[in-house]
Design a protein around this nucleic acid. Structure first.
Lengths: 247, 247
DNA sequence: GCAGGGTATGTGGTCAGACCACAGGAGGGA
DNA sequence: TCCCTCCTGTGGTCTGACCACATACCCTGC
């Protein structure tokens, strides 16, 4: 009761959310042009644009200039986009501890490989295997390696069939990606680390393929904990300022 | 290389994220006024505002009108806000299945109560107990009951000390809150359901207090699965259109 | 009749300037 | 000394305009 003054762009957001909820706006559909929407809702174009910016940040729509069927604001489905931004921003401002992110990855990935082992989604597991093959390229840069690494872990989450878990996993990996990359130069021997990661990935996937979820969970936890311990220790040694002693 | 044209509001976002990351913008600090920021960065005020809308949606800042120390855009830390919106929007547009949300809750809550039982955070557990006391009020509406219910479950997540898990749990509950409320009228006997939920809550908290994480996990899974099964069945009976037979 | 290129059109992206409502603080009057 | 009023700075909103871009159309030349 104390604040019954919704801002204009919130009205626009509510309207579009209603359109999505009712099914009048489907995946791939195009929103009315900004000027047209402004006319329909009786608000100004800047208010429309503020709402569109939010929806874009949430991974609900994508905008592009020009004309034609692909131009304008179209509905997409990228749940990970918004969550990634949220995690990244709050990590950047130190409102979320890195330890908690790693711990969350541990519990989600352990669950994922158990579930993936039970489900045996051949399609996703084949994708995961293909990613591992690509990662065997010795000439690959650490940045490219980690992108594929992230994709591999996400593909395991996808093999559970749970899109929410997959989205969260994607977001956690995306949010900490720059941190992981920053840790690489500090590693004592990146080539050796990469060899170990490749070996561990193969073992995890083999355990899933054989249906041994418990083994896969044990291996994936060891895999993640091992890398972060190494990265944290190396980073701390190279630049103590990056790992504050706060609780 | 193909698209090297960042939009103006993205430049602003990157700038503010840099300020947060470097520590120049701390929690509780106030951003420069929109007009001043526009002048500093050499962009227009609408571009500043679009960036601020995104940050606000992500739970990074809060804006308020007027003058004084509390007015303007101040840095807050509400990681759950952005994630909640993302989940809610993608649920609204049916891009995320409700089943996956419930399954994710199951795995997160089972982990949380195990961890909470191991940690024995007396402060958070006292808060959880207090919430249960409040929920004993028989005159309470279903809406208020479910708000406290959500707070109870989140308090268990908070008792693990993991802010990321707590934020995700808050977001999942927030995103499905309207769905849960919508299911209540279809329940055969809300009073009986509420009694059962109260009893189960007490049992879960007791198991955590006694340090029996496994028992707590079993109970919380049964608790959540039971409610959703009942809600889904009732909703389907009352309005079959709401639960499509899609896989 | 057909192919090519130039142009018309509609789109998001950006800007400048203005006015409003609001909240706090400074100043003057009782 | 206290209270009230006005001033000032803030976000919120709107209008109107121009730009860059990508498609779709039409006109020209063959």
């Amino acid at each position: 009761m104390t604040d019954a003054r919704p801002r204009t762009h919130e009205l626009v957001l509510r309207h579009i959310e209603g359109e999505l909820s009712s099914g009048r706006l489907k995946l791939g559909a195009k929103l009315p042009a900004e000027r047209a929407l402004a006319g329909q809702l009786g608000v100004s174009r800047p208010s429309i644009r503020e709402a569109i910016r939010v929806l874009e940040a949430m991974g609900v729509i994508r905008t592009s200039v020009g004309s034609g069927p692909d131009a304008g604001a179209v509905v997409v489905a990228d749940p990970a986009a918004g969550i990634t931004s949220a995690f990244r921003l709050h990590l950047a401002s130190s409102h979320l501890p890195m330890f908690d992110v790693v711990q969350t990855r541990l519990l989600l990935e352990a669950w994922s490989v158990r579930e993936a082992a039970a489900q045996q989604d051949e399609g996703q597991l084949a994708i995961a295997a293909d990613l591992l093959d690509q990662m065997d390229d010795r000439a690959m840069s650490a940045a490219d390696f980690h992108l594929l690494d992230a994709e591999f872990h996400v593909s395991l989450a996808r093999a559970t069939g749970n899109e929410v878990v997959a989205a969260i996993m994607t977001s956690l990996r995306g949010a900490i990606h720059h941190y992981v990359l920053g840790a690489v130069p500090a590693l004592p021997d990146w080539a050796a680390t990469a060899r170990r990661l490749r070996r561990q990935h193969r073992a995890i996937l083999a355990a899933i393929d054989s249906g041994d979820g418990e083994l896969a969970a044990t291996l994936v936890v060891r895999h993640i904990e091992g890398f972060y311990r190494e990265a944290a220790v190396s980073t701390a040694a190279a630049d103590p300022a990056q790992s504050p002693p706060s609780a």
